[in-house]
């Protein structure tokens, strides 16, 4: 029934820096099924963008990777540059946080999108133009024929992001990776873009991997979630299971750190300490120095493994995952509040 489109296995990534080789990703594994939506969350520096760039084969030259990245069964790490370039756009596409960095200011958006199409398919200029206008229409750009003749700076932030989506989808990719596509736009525009991604994904059967630091944004769109911490996957499961019963203390902590409409001046759970630098990682569980539940055994290496009652769909990288009962954002079938949730331990201000 489900078919695995992207299968990332034991991906590690090292960067050659002036201070020596630093490991940015460690043993990252996750899958994206066909026609589904997966979110990736984590704080700044956790490795979300690096994971995306690795999948697209767009890493800086100083990067070294080990592991496997299988797309439709083929290992991308074994592909030549030319093969990868061909895959980008028609197999996997990406949209970025800042559309201005990806759009060329000296060409109209119509020219840029047609150009992408013509690099993938044998189409006449005229066909390319027609397809481009259709695509601009599909992403909700009003008056697409006229807009296709405009330059990126003539568009609002939201319209530019739509043009980016059109450009990413024109080659009919099977997987769209969206790296913080809504971080730079207003909340009402964010809602429009999330709706658009949802519709396009559903209508075209495109799988979407949405990268965000906002668990709410991921919950709006994604069926599954992967949580990254300091270059490792610490938890991966369905969005519903994650919100109901997070298995990793970091995931639960994050949920209770975020103010919500109902948290009115109540103490937020501030996870003590801060994310370690890639060259100063603790032994064993990387969250250990900040974790309220750490025991001496947490200093031993620990792998991502299924949790007891979560079924095969719930993997956690925590030694105590089976015994801990961590608060999620659901309580008795309703949204949890600070009053009814089990106390989250943690430091104050």
């Amino acid at each position: 029934m489900t078919e695995t489109l992207l299968d990332v296995r034991n991906l590690s990534l090292y960067l050659d820096t002036p201070d020596g080789d630093v490991q940015i990703l460690d043993d990252v594994s996750f899958t994206v099924e066909r026609s589904t939506t997966v979110g990736m969350i984590g704080e700044s520096g956790s490795g979300k963008s690096m994971t995306a760039l690795a999948v697209l084969g767009l890493l800086p030259p100083r990067a070294r990777v080990t592991g496997e990245i299988r797309f439709r069964g083929t290992d991308l790490l074994a592909m030549s540059r030319a093969e990868l370039a061909r895959l980008r756009g028609t197999g996997i596409s990406m949209i970025f946080q800042e559309p201005m960095t990806a759009l060329d200011p000296v060409f109209t958006i119509g020219q840029q999108i047609s150009q992408v199409l013509r690099s993938h398919r044998r189409v006449t200029r005229r066909e390319a133009r027609e397809k481009t206008i259709e695509m601009l229409d599909a992403v909700g750009i009003p008056d697409p024929a006229r807009r296709s003749g405009e330059y990126p700076h003539q568009l609002s932030g939201g319209m530019r992001q739509r043009a980016m989506i059109a450009m990413a989808l024109i080659g009919e990719p099977e997987l769209l990776i969206a790296d913080e596509p809504t971080t730079a736009v207003d909340i009402t525009i964010q809602a429009q873009l999330l709706d658009l991604l949802e519709t396009l994904g559903r209508e075209r059967g495109t799988s979407i991997m949405l990268i965000s630091h906002d668990i709410g944004v991921v919950a709006e769109l994604c069926r599954r979630v992967v949580v990254l911490y300091a270059g490792q996957v610490v938890e991966a499961t369905t969005t519903d299971a994650l919100l109901e019963r997070p298995g990793h203390p970091y995931t639960s902590g994050l949920m209770w750190a975020v103010p919500r409409l109902g948290t009115r001046r109540q103490r937020l759970h501030a996870i003590r300490g801060r994310v370690p630098q890639p060259d100063q990682l603790p032994t064993g569980c990387r969250f250990r120095p900040r974790c309220d539940f750490a025991v001496p055994e947490c200093a031993e290496p620990i792998a991502l493994a299924p949790v007891g009652d979560g079924g095969p769909e719930h993997d956690v990288r925590c030694r105590r995952a089976d015994e801990l009962d961590l608060p999620g954002l659901v309580h008795d079938g309703a949204e949890a509040t600070v009053e009814n949730a089990p106390v989250v331990q943690g430091s104050g201000s």
Partner: peptide
Amino acid sequence: LAAQPRALPSYLRTERREVLRGD
């Protein structure tokens, strides 16, 4: 308020949010 993303599971997202059009 309707545009505010909510960290809630699918079964608690009952009402379909109204998306504001335009810029």
